[in-house]
Design a binder for these strands. Sequence first.
DNA 1: ACAAAAAATACAATCGATTGTATTTTAAAT
DNA 2: ATTTAAAATACAATCGATTGTATTTTTTGT
Lengths: 338, 338
Amino acid sequence: MKSNKTTIHDISKALNIDSSTVSRALNNSPRVSEKTRKKIRQKALELGYQRNSLASNLRTNKTHTIGVIVPRISRNFFATVIAGIEETAYEAGYNVVICQSLESLERETKFMDTLLSNRVDGVLISISMETTSYEHLLAFKQHGGPIVFYDRPCHIENCTSVSIDDFQASYNATKHLIEQGCKHIAHFSGPQEIELYKNRKKGFITALEDHNLLYKEAYCFESGLSSNDGIEIAKKIVKLKQIDGIYSANDTAAISAMQYLKSKGIQIPNDIAVVGFNNDPISAVIEPGLTTVNQPDFEMGNIAATELIKQIQNKTANSEKDSIILSSELIVRNSSNK
Amino acid sequence: MKSNKTTIHDISKALNIDSSTVSRALNNSPRVSEKTRKKIRQKALELGYQRNSLASNLRTNKTHTIGVIVPRISRNFFATVIAGIEETAYEAGYNVVICQSLESLERETKFMDTLLSNRVDGVLISISMETTSYEHLLAFKQHGGPIVFYDRPCHIENCTSVSIDDFQASYNATKHLIEQGCKHIAHFSGPQEIELYKNRKKGFITALEDHNLLYKEAYCFESGLSSNDGIEIAKKIVKLKQIDGIYSANDTAAISAMQYLKSKGIQIPNDIAVVGFNNDPISAVIEPGLTTVNQPDFEMGNIAATELIKQIQNKTANSEKDSIILSSELIVRNSSNK
DNA sequence: ACAAAAAATACAATCGATTGTATTTTAAAT
DNA sequence: ATTTAAAATACAATCGATTGTATTTTTTGT
């Protein structure tokens, strides 16, 4: 069953011009005279010709498409990074295929496979919370193309990571709580296999130590940092009865915890001060406003995409830089303003 | 420059078996004996073979990919719809390509073009606020495949729209404000070329009329319903000094308006009651909680994708149904609880 | 053991575009 | 007018997989 779409051969036949010339004309090759180029363009329009990218990509071995793997598209931070990626890609003439890992390694692996099959030119990825082995990434790197990590750095040979300095941001956030007078600070952390969460935790611990506060493992709660996780941890914190500060590695968990604490009559920031991470839009709306770390999300997308495209076009596919560090800032609101 | 990737021909040569047999083996065709199938599978694994989907898709004229055009990915409602689409597509073995129109007709048109070039099997689209002409959609419908509209219905021949009953939802929301005692209700509306906003406005007006309230054109504010638009309109409303209720066609504008009004010392809901649309997560966190219309967002994605895939596979590409209407509900919170 | 049927595999065309090389046409130079 | 160079176009192979048809091999029945 033949597809009804117009091909260069249809144009070729209609004008009695070889299809190679038609192809060149449509690609503005200087090898075609202005006169025939016009004729071909005209006929193409007339027949409603639309290039078949599959054929073109097969032949040229390029798709001008980049794959993006994101843990969850509905997180504002990621949605904004994607918007940044998209902007840069669009301007550079690249298409973007977005895949949600939903924090599942299995899905992530399948998507890397599909992206490889579809011969995307490169991949931008923020690894899932389950990702502790890297074969699927290495496989792509070997047979596919460059990979650039964003937000969650990952040290694979010849791959660049674009992120903020999580250690430092975390250190500053914790220091801020200490300066507000908090003595017993809890930390909401993510899976320790993920470097980002390890770094945030390290920053937290180091800040405590530098200010002569004791770090207690019992005050560090590791979870997936979902809304539900925030509530569950908040429950435990209420029972502990000693916590006077919370530093959460993301806003999602911080916000649900805040809501739970408020519902239990706990005063924020007076009883417990709270600091989050990501500057989610909700953090500015909740009362009291949530102090949080603002990351250059949109810009992170721009930069990661720019770096990837550079690597794609250099064809060396080897990154000079292991990591690109963007600056972040602590936005102080009332949730920590004792 | 040859790509270094393994092809069926490499496997074919390595085993001295024809490539057609290799292809069939890898596709589990019954025409290949179990013995050689195993041998081929084994060798494929050994050589790190990865099917080239470009070639396959070119030959079969199917991509198992659906295009999704979304106004803005960072709006929670859309992000959730996409998650729903993605879930269904993933289960059915379809890939999803997501494109952000950013409410621009130009971008939307370019994307439809690209999707057509890339031969996606079908498209799910929520048209941009600028989309008042449909040539780009008709072109895809003619040469491409089925189109299913979600959220923002669009009546093109043989296309299905999946949405809620905006008129009714709007009617109920307005009725609710009236029942709370509001007499001078303002409406934040979107571009009237978009059926969705027209319907929401109609529902608003009809509810007023049914309750013997005068509809004033001056109380209806048309905009892009962005955060900024909400603030600008709120400013005007403060100047009017008569408004005692706001019904906004989305939460984004309602929320920023609420914040502006609060900053001006206006009491919500006592001075002005507010109702929004979409049940954005922020609406549950802002104080007072924003009364809003909850749409089955995730489910809408599921259903739209299911319908599209059905049409793709039926190959008739003709929809039986012009529209699929999902039910919505008004979530009453304190912003309208006088 | 042999013909017929069934199973397994090989051959070859094809999807639609790109591109190196060959050929023809046009223009420039003598 | 004729040679030469340059410009324009045609030819043909190719990208990697799929698939209808042909051929070979194996199995079955008698």
